[in-house]
Simulated scan of single mutants.
Amino acid sequence: MDLSFLFADWLGTPVWMWLGFIAVVIALLVFDLGVLHRDHREIEARESLVLSAGYIGLGLAFGGWVWWQLGAEPGMNYLTGFVVEKTLALDNVFVIALIFSFFAVPRKYQHRVLFWGILGVIVLRAIMIGLGAALVSQFGWVLYIFAAFLILTGIKMLWMGDKEPEIGNNPVIGFLRQRFKVTDEHHGPNFFVRKLDPQTGKMVRYITPLFMALVMVEIADVIFAVDSVPAIFAITTDPFIVYTSNIFAILGLRALYFALAAMIHRFTYLKPALAVVLLFIGGKIFVADLLGLEKVPAALSLGVTFAIIAAGIIWSLIKTRRSAASVKEAGA
């Protein structure tokens, strides 16, 4: 059997590396749904933290493997992208919590929505990254548009602060309720259910709130992808690094959600830190051009990105702990 095709380049990376990555992702998804959560039980915070640590460890291990196979610069670009995407995923947790609250999704079925949402993310990100890679390869100036967009997004995030999105006023919800039959009550883990139509007296298919929540989670990811995809392309234009760092950061979102949903208020300064990161990533494209550099060194990008996000997390934990202590003393 001729296996030479495995060593052929596809989008700048050997085919065997793409196949290895896909095999790991499929194995993780099968293990997650088929072994860990096949009984729709609730995920406790302790289990969530353990699983999250495992996913983060796998993501970092894959980065080490990329470093070993492709070199130091691709390895650092992967780690930078992984850190940025993981932080954006943390911001996404807050929106997902609002969606689950709005549709009153029982905790034991939230993992089902997140799992199928992740499958949609894998496909959607592949399409968006493929389009982005094609644009960048054909029109180099597109990177400057991405950079400008990131700068504007960072400014907007700083300006808007912690303003909550209004889930109930989303036009997609109105569209689904007008075009389809929607039941207001949950029916276990089902996305669809057959019920008697009071008008016709016939059994018809209804959409459940669980499916509505899934649709909103997918829409939320598309919105976040508009930020994250330009962000990673501003770090590197290698499709393999872009896609793998995205997917490994998102794969652990399901497990991370259950650990962070109840304590997301502790990360008050994470969003401002993320806004500064986007300003830095977008700004370094223009700064490198002004200084006559091909690009900012990968080690510098990784170091600055990690430092900003770590500072945001640490300062958030310190400030919220002080606030909690003050409230406790006032109530004593």
Results as ranks from 00 to 15, higher is better:
L6N: 00
G20Y: 06
V24K: 08
I26S: 01
L29E: 04
A45D: 14
R46Y: 05
E47P: 03
A53N: 04
Y55C: 06
G57Y: 04
G63A: 12
G75I: 07
N77W: 00
T80S: 04
G81C: 07
L88S: 13
H111S: 10
R112E: 10
R112N: 03
G117K: 00
I122Y: 07
I127Q: 10
G130E: 02
F139S: 09
L152H: 05
L152S: 13
T153N: 14
G154N: 11
I155R: 10
K156P: 05
E166N: 15
E166Y: 00
G168E: 09
I173R: 09
L176I: 01
R179A: 11
F180S: 06
H186W: 00
D197W: 02
Q199A: 15
M203E: 14
R205I: 06
M216H: 01
E218T: 14
F233L: 01
A234R: 03
T236V: 12
Y243D: 00
Y243E: 05
I247T: 08
F248K: 11
M263I: 15
F267H: 08
L274Q: 05
A275Y: 05
L279N: 12
F280P: 06
L290M: 03
L291C: 09
V296K: 02
A298V: 01
G303L: 04
V304L: 07
A307R: 01
I308T: 14
I308Y: 12
I309G: 06
I314A: 15
S316V: 03
S316E: 04
A325T: 11
A332D: 15
